[in-house]
Design a protein around this nucleic acid. Sequence first.
RNA 1: GGGUCUAUAGCUCAGCAGGAUAGAGCAACAGCCUUCUAAGCUGUGGGUCGGAGGUUCGAGUCCUCCUAGGCUCACCA
Length: 577
Amino acid sequence: MDYKVEISALLSKITGLESEEIARLMEIPPQSDMGDYAFPCFILSKQMRKSPVMIAAEIASSSDFDAPYIDSVRSQGPYVNFFIDKGHYAKSVVSEILQKGEQYVSSNIGIGKTVIVEFSSPNIAKPFHVGHAFTTVLGHSLSRIYDKLGYNVVRVNHLGDYGTQFGKLITAYRLWGDESALEASPIDELLRIYVLFHEKEKDDPQLTQDARDNFRRLEAGEPEEKALWQRFRDLSLKAFAKVYDRMGVTFDSYKGESDYSDRIPGVISFLEEKDLLIDSDGARVVMLDEYKLPPCLVVKSDGTTIYASRDLAAAMFRHEHYNFYKNIYVVGLPQSLHFQQVFAVLDKAGADYAKNCEHVGFGLVKFKNMKFSTREGNIVVLEDLLNESIAKTLDIIRSNAELRQTDMSEDEILDIANKVGIGSVIYTYLKSGRERDIVFSWEEMLDFEGDSAPYLIYTYARTRSILRKAMDQGISSSNAFDDALSLLKSDEEFALLKLLSDLPDAIEKAASSNEPFMLSRQVSRIARAFNRFYNNSSILRDSDDRLRSARLAICEAVCTAIKTGTYLLGIDVVERM
RNA sequence: GGGUCUAUAGCUCAGCAGGAUAGAGCAACAGCCUUCUAAGCUGUGGGUCGGAGGUUCGAGUCCUCCUAGGCUCACCA
């Protein structure tokens, strides 16, 4: 039940204010000893011509608060503080979670609505580095979150498989390409010749010209260039698939930039019909002064297309094909002007779906003082980071296994190391607001203590261990469905229950702000509260078997919360570690 | 120069729509494993919330100005 709504209704009778307004004004006190809900009386002081302190005292002394779920009502300064009956609360929260299981965080607010999440979108022929991981991890998590809320989610990998860079690559490959190296390690070989091209290009303008010619031939569909491009693309996709597979990331569409090249004429004629295209130094642009934005370049002076035209084509296609409720672009913050322009062009052209397009930006992944740059070769490849993380996890598991004398098989150990190691990397990207820059450091990326994925997974594994032991001893939480749950009224238990009950709200906030950290924080808080409880009370060893069952029920609820929460972040839990 | 974002503990970050004594994690220091997994828990120290004005009963939160920094400003993506 929703205690806030209930209390607001009671207050409404006393104060005469609308119940909804009261619910909006209600607060959660900063300290638990101040109660569970608080009503600030400032708003009443003007109309009643009394000090808020006096009003609070009057309300608190009212006799209308005799509901069974209210323990007490006290005024403190200008606030009326409500203390919920802990037993009542425990029964309500725990039984709901146990009955609904993982569905307790589900919602149907998204039923019948399609959300497109464009994310990851790596450039073909370039290594998948720790910067790409940001959009991949963010988009993956957002997809799962929207999915959980009932939306129809379309995951789109808008591959960077087009543009002048491919002219460069074709030129470079013909000059310096090594067939066997390409076969053995495609991305490394493509990167090698790409870097080489940029070195040589400085002293040889002919190379630049060749590259442009080759891109033009590619765009014109010349078979030789097309075949090479296709090969680069296939090899790259195969390499990317390995990384996605490791992280459990999937897509519904791999429609990349190249897929839209034949729709560009449609975009241009559409804009021409609306009379929006203007010649400017030989190029064709859409003026956006009324949006206070610089003009958007749609066709270059040499007649070829540019990313803005391809993004326009993609948005138009998605509208026709999916009729989306939301079209989200999980792309780095530096591209925010670009998206503003694209959306503004759509809006100016009268496309009503422009307002449903949203750029979900994120910060830069930096390396000390410099940006990662493919051309300069100062990058950290995601696979290396994952491997390091897994290796470190493996060490810890092995030494723990020895210490605890567990009988885990080598396969199980490897599986755990994989999940914890990869989860750890994922969590690093999702623990703070997405617009923050991440300064890459091995030390911090591989810190497994405190606020980290291993902490969450560890808490889960530990709790599962208790539940397994309980089962072995024939103790069950099932007889806790009666009043035993109302025995859960210690401070630690109560604090934990509040956090559990707030999880669905955290998920909705994560979706509405496209900020998975709203969720990761809540899961982290739950784990911390549980560990506190765990260290303060014995669960299986308590002499009262009703309390024992009730505590086991809390353990189950915590497992459910952590498992679903981490799943929505893209992190797997393990039964033992 | 225009646009935009950021500035909170030594470090990394929270602080939801203004509200009660500004919170976590890491690091530091002091403790807790014959007892359910110590990747854990408890405690201590640490802050003029970048600066100055203003709005308000009340500002880390809203407005203005200033300072510092990031990103960005059409024929790359």
